[in-house]
Each structure stands twice: as structure tokens, then as C-alpha cells.
Write a protein that binds this DNA or RNA. Structure first.
Lengths: 204, 204
DNA sequence: GTCTATAAAGTGATAGAC
DNA sequence: GTCTATCACTTTATAGAC
């Protein structure tokens, strides 16, 4: 992890915000370094290139997010009383908690872009570095949904993860009622998403 | 509609493909006119600007797609025997049929990008020109799901339309088995999506 | 580690000949 | 309606001073 307020971290924060807003191509290094309050040359000095910076934007959040997701999954995985909803909570809750703290909700928008873009380079990067996470979730889903064929299961998981990522990318923009606390609002959203996803996964 | 093979149409086809692949910012007018086999200046002559071209890429497909969706909805809307699945079919089937013919599946990828980008200009354009379609579908969903609050209903429709658009944007890339006809494969996918969406919408 | 200056290439858009 | 040539900028990236 980088020291808070370091040049590297300020660049990552500005990049995350601008990539969310304008996309990887749409955000220029000039906008980015200007927003970060650092020199234009700093990106190449600290990251090597714009592409490497994009990679680090993903790594910074996904390393932590996926560690949390796997830890939450490990708590319920393989247990006899585990319900589908518990596994989905392990997938959803860490992401929505990320959305809560500084900049995290912007990252979910970056991630949703990556889903929709179907870019091969990006997909390969994500699959190589974080593919094991989805494989573990898939194994647990398979255990809890024994009636589904492999084909059908993969298909539904794909649909659900896409829908959830897209939904969570919009979470930061949903206006919550003033009389509901941030924490309560997030928990309510989590429950909505879990119900929705569980219904979709186990549809007969 | 433009004459098939006209300069305008060749530009629109090339634009659709490149916007799907590289995004609106990522695809340059030079790549685009080169792929279309037309002169660089042709885009500005025929469309005025790159932004106007983007608009036309959406219009060309959405005018037809939404007309078909509304026609299909009209056949089941308000009838006593109508099920949730019938309304979803009216939404899904025209889009997957579009995916079948030339270039349409590329357009669904463009549309999915638009969903994930959260770009205000684009969202305003879509809402102003095609918002009435979602309003009609929403009204029918509300009739068939009287137990849901308005808030809850809007939320679920948002989730479902996002998920469906994302899923359909990947449809053209799913490898189908050799022993299944294109038509059968599409119908199977339609049924999967309908079941999934119906379960999510009516989750208790 | 941060800066300025600049290279080298790419961008959207347009004027004007045909 | 199509073309070439070009303008005015922006792009990523880097060399070299401090």
C-alpha cells in the first residue's frame, strides 16, 4: 500500500475518478495529472505508461475486495446449513462496503465499464489475476444448486455477476432518503440485491 | 432508411462495429472511414460531426427496435390472461432478433456500453427519445406486480433491464453447439432470459 | 522525485479543387 | 458527393535540467 497523500496515491485516486467518468480512452493524462495536482511526467515516472496505470487502478481495489469476498465465502462454504443467500452476501456485501468509503463507488463504475467493454486485454488480465475467486464461488453455487446443469449454472452466474456489478456501479448515485442512515441504506440495498440474485439463480 | 451500400450506411456499419469494439472515444474517424472504405471527410459531410454520427448509430437501430417492442407489448398489454413472461418476451425477443441480423449484435454491445458509462449526454438523449417505451413497459409491469411499491418496482426494472442488456450484448459471442440451429439457440436463450428476469422481478 | 520543454504521432474538423 | 491538403490542437511519452 502507498502512503496516504503520496503522489502515487493521488494519481490513482484521480485516475479512478476520471476513468469512471470518461473511460480509459476518454480521460487523458493531462486531465488526470492536473486533477491530481501532480506533474504530467509523474504518471510515466511512477507507473511506466497509461496502460500500467489502468492495471494498478484495478489491482489496488480488487486485491482487497477479492480477499474480503473469499474470506466471507470461507465462513459459509461447505457448511450444511448454508443458504444461497449467504453465498451471495459474501459476494455483494464487500463490494457495497467498498462503495461506501472514499472513491470506492467510483471504482465500481470502472469495473462495470470493464464488463460492458468486452475488451480482450482487460478480460484476460482480470481472469488471470482474479479468476480463482469466481471459480470458488461457482463451486459453492454448484453445491447449493444441484439441479442445474453446468452449462445452465455458468450462464446464470454470468448473468447475475454482470447484473450485480452494473447495479452496484449505480449505487453511489442513488439518492437515499434523508431519514435513512447510510449504513441502513446500504444494508437495505444489499438485501434487495441478494433477494433478486437468489431468485434469478434458482429460477425453475 | 438509407440505400443499402450507400456511403452513409457504410459509415454507420463501420461506426457500429468500431464503437462496439473500442468505444466512442477509442474509435477514431480515421479508423472508421478507413474501415468503411470512404474518405475521411465523408463523416463530417454526411453527419456534421462525430457526435452526430454517434447519435445516428443509436437512432438507426433503436427506432426499429423500440417500435417492435411496443408492437409486441401492445398485443399483450392490459389483457386479463397476460403473464409477466409475456411482457418480458415483448422486451427481449425483438432485441435478440436484432442480434441475429447483420451487425445487430454489435449494436447491443454499443447499447451495453451506454448503460455502463453513465454518461449524462447519452442518457439524456436516450431518455428524451425512447423514454416513452420504458414508461409503457413499467406501467404493464406495475399492473402485473401489484404487491410491489413504486420504489421497489422501479428499482427492479432498472436491475432487470441492465442485466438483460448486458446479457444480450454478450449473446453474439456465445458459441452455440453445432447441432443446434441458430434459431433454436436464440429461442433457448430467450426462454432463459425470460425465466431469469421473471424470477428476479417477482422475487418475494 | 519533480520539473520544463519538446518530440512524434494522432485527433476532429474544414477549405477548396474537382 | 468525393477528394487532398492542411489547420489547430491534443495525445502519450521522454530527454535532460534541477
Amino acid at each position: 500500500m502507498n502512503p496516504a497523500g503520496s503522489t502515487k496515491e493521488r494519481i490513482l485516486n484521480a485516475a479512478e475518478a476520471l476513468f469512471a467518468q470518461r473511460g480509459f480512452d476518454g480521460a487523458s493524462l493531462r486531465q488526470l495529472t492536473s486533477a491530481a495536482g501532480v506533474n504530467l511526467a509523474a504518471v510515466n515516472y511512477h507507473f511506466g505508461s497509461k496502460d500500467k496505470l489502468v492495471e494498478q487502478v484495478f489491482r489496488r481495489r480488487l486485491d482487497a475486495l477479492n480477499t474480503e469476498r473469499l474470506a466471507a465465502l470461507a465462513k459459509v462454504s461447505g457448511a450444511p446449513g448454508t443458504r444461497l443467500e449467504d453465498v451471495l452476501a459474501a459476494f455483494i456485501r464487500p463490494a457495497l462496503e467498498l462503495s461506501h468509503d472514499n472513491g470506492g463507488s467510483l471504482f465500481m463504475r470502472v469495473l462495470a465499464r470493464a464488463f460492458a467493454e468486452h475488451d480482450d486485454t482487460l478480460r484476460t488480465f482480470l481472469s488471470e489475476n482474479y479468476g480463482h475467486v469466481m471459480r470458488q464461488f461457482t463451486a459453492e453455487f454448484a453445491r447449493l444448486l444441484p439441479g442445474l446443469s453446468k452449462e445452465e449454472l455458468y450462464w446464470r452466474i454470468d448473468l447475475v455477476t454482470g447484473a450485480l456489478t452494473l447495479a452496484m456501479s449505480g449505487f453511489g448515485m442513488i439518492r437515499r432518503r434523508d431519514n435513512v442512515s447510510e449504513r441502513a441504506h446500504r444494508e437495505q440495498t444489499t438485501q434487495h440485491l441478494i433477494r433478486f440474485a437468489a431468485a434469478g439463480l434458482s429460477a425453475s
